[in-house]
């Protein structure tokens, strides 16, 4: 890894900031050529659109019960069947998607931002600052999560913001460690040294020169974080934090469905499929983004 990546060096060092938009524009053009990424983007769009518009088109509400009907297999009236209280699974899945997508994306965004900045700063500066920051991460890893969550609720009541705090508190840690490891590996490379010698500020070096070079692992780990967050939301609702029934979320629907997989397969299969499809799309999109933003591979 000792060789200077000259192509990148020249792009990074000599490109004025104002022209940054053309880099994104190029990336967008490259992304559009990647069929899987486009598929991912379109699928995500459809799922999101369905979740936010679909419920208005359905004759059922997420809480309308039909106790006499109970859990019924899919048919013409209930396309995805009904749950044990006779509620339409499709409409519950769509409403649940709103919750899961919102929580998944925003909590991941929080974790991503904190993790990347924290890890980059620790890795870049090193020394005592790094030691202090990383021991703090170790401490955060070690605190008992259920106790932490219950305490949050005791002191702040039940509140949707707490959901993000609780998820954010655990999910940024590994991101920070990954970013730190990458930054430490890259910061001694020649093109960074060159940027330093040109007198660029540290902030500029971190954000314009280092981070673009470690986007790959960041994107991959982000696509791993989103499903973890969605499932964590189900555990938090077990502790009483998060959405309250009769509203549901994908995590809760899958958990409930898993317990009845033999009797009422549709309760697991449909939420599971939608969940998987979303993650596949996210991963395709993530891979595409990574490729599109990677200056080096485009010049291959």
């Amino acid at each position: 890894m000792s060789n200077v990546n000259t192509t990148f060096l020249s792009t990074a060092l000599h490109q004025p900031i104002e022209k940054g938009s053309s880099l994104w524009h190029d990336a967008w053009l490259r992304l559009r050529k990647n069929r899987l990424a486009v598929f991912g983007l379109v699928a995500l769009g459809i799922i999101a659109l369905a979740c936010f518009i679909g419920p208005f088109l359905s004759p059922y509400g997420y809480e309308d019960q039909n106790l006499e009907l109970g859990a019924a297999a899919p048919d013409a009236k209930h396309w995805l069947g009904t749950d044990t209280l006779g509620r339409d699974l499709l409409v519950r899945l769509l409403y649940g998607g709103r919750v899961s997508i919102a929580v998944g994306l925003s909590a991941t965004f929080v974790a991503l931002t904190i993790g990347v900045v924290y890890g980059a700063v620790a890795g870049f500066f090193g020394g005592k600052r790094d030691a202090f920051m990383m021991r703090t991460v170790d401490i955060m890893y070690s605190l008992p999560f259920p106790i932490f969550v219950i305490l949050l609720m005791v002191f702040f009541g039940r509140n949707i913001i707490l959901l993000f705090v609780a998820i954010g508190a655990v999910e940024w840690l590994t991101m920070a460690r990954i970013v730190r490891g990458q930054v430490m590996a890259i910061k001694k490379m020649e093109f960074i040294e060159a940027a330093r010698s040109l007198g660029f500020g540290r902030r500029r070096i971190i954000f314009r020169h280092i981070l673009p070079n470690i986007l790959g692992p960041i994107i991959v780990y982000t696509t791993l974080t989103i499903p973890a967050v969605m499932l964590l939301e189900a555990f938090l609702s077990f502790l009483g934090l998060g959405v309250q029934p009769p509203m549901s979320s994908w995590g809760v629907l899958i958990k409930d469905g898993a317990e009845k997989m033999e009797e009422f397969w549709w309760l697991l299969v449909f939420p599971g499929t939608v969940f998987s499809l979303t993650l596949f799309s996210l991963n395709f999109l993530g891979d595409g983004l990574r490729d599109a933003l990677d200056v080096r591979s485009s010049k291959d």
Binding site: N3, V4, N5, G216, N283, R290, D294, R296
Partner: peptide, 22 residues
Amino acid sequence: APISRLTRGGMLEVLHQDFIRT
């Protein structure tokens, strides 16, 4: 599963670098 994803991502970063070409 996550290890395979991270490995793929990490390897892609490296495989294009000059020392590999060398």
